[in-house]
Design a protein around this nucleic acid. Structure first.
Length: 554
DNA sequence: GCCGTTTTCGGCCCGACTGTTTTCAGTCG
């Protein structure tokens, strides 16, 4: 096992310990810390073990060290196996219920034997929860509502997860000889941030043979009508296959890509093998799939040139192990280099974000030394020193004037007090936008797709101020956030706001959020010129320096 | 379970909020 797999196992032990020994929460915390300590190690875990330095690492002691050694050597830990055996396999699915944490889950399991959403619902409906210590009528009511939310979300999927599943299915189709062509359509092709099912268009001249073959590709496959087969993937995701003749592939692709409103506005769909020809024959300008949501999307006179991943020359909003990232400064910079980026803006958390390991001034200086040390190894990559600084409840920016002036750029984000009223929240953000050190506004609404609504805010007032102050609004590409929502972008544009596509990367892998962020920008109709990080390193450096001078000069 | 030291126990990150209490516990970020 590598360090990340081992760290995941340690996190799992930690979660089980909160259930198994709720009175000793620090034991669980110790395993969590050990996981974190391991992730932030530069060196290979097997080297650390061989040299005897493992347990000298801060946060890793005798017990956690022994578990790490077992996992590294055997790929399993008897201690973890034992813990798993003590609880029902689905017990952590209960965490999907809002406001239900491990402490309460432990009580529910211990006293009522609750081990799944179904168990929990039955217990709540039987009015059994109110009898438990720490639970009351309101909690029981909220849990019942929460179960509904958890179930509702169960059948919806984040775009990258659904896309990957869909592409896997499409690859399997390649082995079916009778299939001439296959393409993913539906909301996945439109790059909608949350989708409910997979749609795949299949071109074939031998319909019956393909239908027979499809029955083996997905579970519970069944013919809906002559052209449609429906099935289930991995026991959770609905898959629809749309069969058509090769000469009809383009038209079927258009029809099943949707949206329903867009297709209705399109009117009669001419037959064509190629989708672009469908538009030509209908005497309509081609509309990229991402832009096919409303009837208006068809009426635009000129299709704008949409931004593409390859246009992004660099990126901002990247975390490292100095705060809550999982890869070191060098690893994050190296990965950016491998992606062919010209520049990276590192931005770890500020002190107010305690839970995320926000950086003190001393830790900042250490990080800057580490950046300097790493630069020769990642040349010619340019590195900008930034921060993701908390917008405090009163609207001031964490760190304060003296420290903020030292950064090349500042991303201002809200990480606390989400439940303020709309007016209070708006005022808070407006005040933050007035701080001359702020370069970007981070994840504007704080939403987490499928788990948490964003806080309420007066968008127009925020856009107006951001436009006036020249503060760019981040399009956070983290698939869980995708915040700013593409639906709000046109309004922001009308106030002169500019954007940056930021990955909010907490690991090397999460640079992938540049792709999802680009999808959002495309859905919003943005071109390369409207995205700050399509500019080259010199332009960006000049812009940031100029802004800094403005902040200093007042 | 880990760590440090005023070495072998006591603290471990913290503040807001909510619902449960009657002074606090669990959850969240």
């Amino acid at each position: 096992m590598d360090k990340f797999e081992i760290a995941r196992a340690l996190d799992e032990i930690s979660r089980y310990l909160e259930l198994a020994e709720p009175s000793n929460k620090f034991k669980a915390l110790a395993y969590e810390r050990a996981a974190r300590a391991l992730r932030s190690q530069d060196r290979d875990v097997h080297d650390l073990i061989a040299s005897g330095e493992l347990t000298k690492t801060a946060g890793i002691g005798k017990a956690t060290g022994a578990v790490i050694e077992e996992l590294a050597r055997d790929g399993r830990s008897p201690y973890l196996d034992e813990l798993r055996a003590r609880f029902p396999p689905g017990i952590f699915e209960l965490l999907r219920v809002p406001n239900l944490g491990l402490k309460k889950i432990a009580i529910l399991h211990e006293t009522l034997g609750v081990g799944s959403l179904d168990d929990l619902e039955a217990a709540a409906r039987a009015n059994k929860l109110t009898t438990l210590k720490g639970f009351g009528a309101k909690t029981q009511e909220k849990i019942l509502e929460g179960i509904d939310k958890a179930r509702h979300r169960e059948s919806r999927f984040l775009l990258p997860i659904a896309l990957e599943a869909a592409e896997n299915v499409r690859e399997q189709l390649a082995s079916i000889d009778e299939i001439d062509d296959a393409e993913v359509s539906g909301s996945i092709r439109r790059r909608l941030e949350v989708v409910r099912n997979i749609n795949i268009v299949i071109a074939t001249k031998k319909r019956d043979a393909v239908i027979a073959a499809l029955l083996r590709v997905v579970e519970n496959a069944a013919k809906v009508d002559d052209d449609t087969v429906k099935g289930i993937l991995n026991g959770e995701m609905d898959v629809w296959f749309h069969l058509c003749a090769p000469a009809d592939f383009g038209s079927t692709l258009l029809r099943t890509t949707g949206s329903v409103e867009f297709v209705e506005a399109f009117g009669r769909i001419p037959k064509a093998q190629d989708e672009a020809d469908v538009f030509t024959r209908a005497k309509l300008p081609f509309v990229p799939p991402e832009r096919r949501e409303t009837a208006d999307d068809l009426r635009r006179k000129r299709a704008p040139k949409l931004v593409e991943l390859k246009h992004l020359r660099g990126t901002f909003h990247v975390h490292t192990t100095f705060s809550d990232g999982r890869n070191t400064v060098l690893e994050m910079l190296g990965a950016a280099n491998e992606r062919g980026l010209q520049y990276v803006g590192l931005s770890d958390h500020s002190p107010a974000a305690h839970y995320a390991g926000g950086l003190s001034e001393e830790r900042l200086r250490q990080q800057w030394r580490e950046i300097d040390k790493s630069l020769p190894e990642v040349a010619p990559l340019r590195v900008f020193r930034g921060t993701e600084a908390d917008i405090l409840p009163d609207g001031t920016i964490d760190y304060g004037e003296r420290v903020l002036a030292k950064f090349d750029f500042v991303i201002a984000s809200i990480h606390s007090r989400f439940q303020m009223s709309k007016d209070e929240m708006t005022e808070r953000i407006l005040l933050a936008l007035d701080d001359p050190h702020v370069t970007f506004l981070g994840h504007l609404t704080g939403r987490k797709l499928l788990s948490r609504d964003g806080y309420s805010v007066d968008f127009d007032r925020v856009f107006e101020k951001a436009g006036a102050r020249g503060v760019m609004i981040e399009i956070n590409g983290n698939p869980n956030r995708l915040d700013l929502d593409w639906r709000h972008v046109p309004r922001a544009l009308s106030f002169g706001v500019r954007f940056a596509i930021n990955p909010d990367a907490h690991s090397i892998r999460e640079y992938g959020a540049l792709m999802t962020g680009t999808w959002v920008a495309r859905k919003a109709g943005l071109g390369p010129k409207e995205i700050f990080n399509t500019r080259d390193a010199d332009e960006v450096a000049e812009f940031l320096a100029e802004r800094k001078r403005g902040a200093a000069g007042g």
